[in-house]
């Protein structure tokens, strides 16, 4: 049953990606303006523009161009980058691990900070700890990513706890070439110096990226726990003397986890969006940095590839959330 459910969701998500490709293709090609002219700038000659138009297939009808493009995407060909003069697919493959690592570490921070605090705040409802956590979550939600990033940089520039930019120090001489995730590869290779260096590099950007998520997930965990606490079945267990910690950490938490998990999936898109700002401030060599350069230099193929990749990120994240929610809730498994 859960199999059907996941299969159906996968197909649904595939349709979403398809829709997304149409939207971004429309934005890139149909919107007024000549992409080739925009890419080359006002100083290029008309011949140069015409040549580029031919190269990019702009002379064909838009629908044909779209199917050419999608056909290419399905074969792993995302076109050529005007910015780096390399295949966009290669550029993406190179930048992706850094972003993946940043996002995964951010999710880890959100999970270990927000969920326990949310549970605690709900347990000590209306106490000082609840109020303090509410303040933290409010600040997390209302502080713009770029402001938080800048404040972190200011702080560190005074105290020098962490490196300000980059992914690894140059003098470490370490290449993550197994999973391409520096934190994982350094451990696999037993390079604890590299691990410490990678950790110190990733900490600030991940913290800046997690701020909004921590605030939101903490809030949702808290209200979800409070909601579950009112249910009859909590009273059932309580009236039979099952200890509080068992009721809270086993029975309530599993049921209450559905809401924050779902929200986390939905908020994944804005997490990737914020990565653009964080990667820029911390000079993190990820896909967002690449995308931003592509956007500023109007490198259409690269821009489209970045948008599609972040859409794929979102879709995969939500499939995982679906799977987890299905594992938690037997009613969903039965319904399919």
């Amino acid at each position: 049953m859960i199999g059907y459910h996941l299969l159906r969701r996968t197909i649904g998500f595939a349709f979403i990606l398809l829709g997304l490709s149409v939207v971004i293709f429309t934005v890139a090609r149909v919107v007024p303006g000549d992409p080739a002219r925009m890419a080359l700038g006002p100083l290029a000659t008309n011949e140069q523009v015409a040549q580029l138009q031919e190269e990019m297939g702009f002379s064909k009808p838009a629908v044909v161009q779209y199917f050419d493009y999608i056909g290419g995407v399905l074969r792993g060909n995302l076109g050529k980058s005007l910015l780096t003069s390399r295949a966009v697919a290669d550029d993406i493959a190179q930048a992706l691990p850094a972003t993946l690592e940043l996002v995964l570490f951010t999710l880890f921070l959100i999970a270990v900070l927000a969920v326990p605090l949310g549970v605690l705040a709900a347990r000590r409802h209306n106490s000082w700890i609840d109020n303090a956590s509410r303040l933290v979550s409010l600040l997390g939600v209302v502080t713009p990513g770029f402001v938080f990033a800048i404040l972190l940089q200011l702080l560190v520039s005074h105290f020098h706890f962490f490196p300000l930019t980059g992914r690894l120090s140059t003098d470490i001489r370490f290449t993550p070439d197994i999973t391409h995730l520096a934190l994982v590869d350094s451990l696999l290779k037993g390079r604890f110096d590299a691990f410490a260096d990678a950790l110190s590099h990733i900490f600030l950007p991940a913290l800046a990226l997690s701020a909004a998520g921590i605030g939101q997930i903490m809030r949702i965990t808290r209200s979800s726990m409070l909601d579950v606490a009112r249910r009859d079945h909590v009273e059932t267990l309580r009236s039979f003397g099952v200890p509080d910690y068992v009721i809270t950490l086993k029975y309530m938490l599993r049921l209450a986890a559905v809401a924050p998990l779902t929200i986390l999936g939905l908020e994944f898109a804005s997490l990737i969006g914020n990565a653009f700002i964080v990667e820029m401030v911390f000079a993190w060599p990820g896909i967002a940095s690449y995308g931003l350069r592509a956007i500023l230099s109007k490198d259409i193929n690269a821009v489209m590839a970045v948008v599609l990749t972040s859409g794929l990120f979102f879709v995969v994240a939500n499939l995982i959330v679906d799977l987890l929610v299905g594992l938690i809730d037997p009613r969903l498994r039965a319904r399919g």
Binding site: D232, H233, V234, L255, I328, P330, R331
Partner: peptide, 10 residues
């Protein structure tokens, strides 16, 4: 209430 008296995910 026999439905709400049990935690649905256990």
């Amino acid at each position: 209430d026999p439905l709400t008296s049990f935690n649905p995910v256990f």
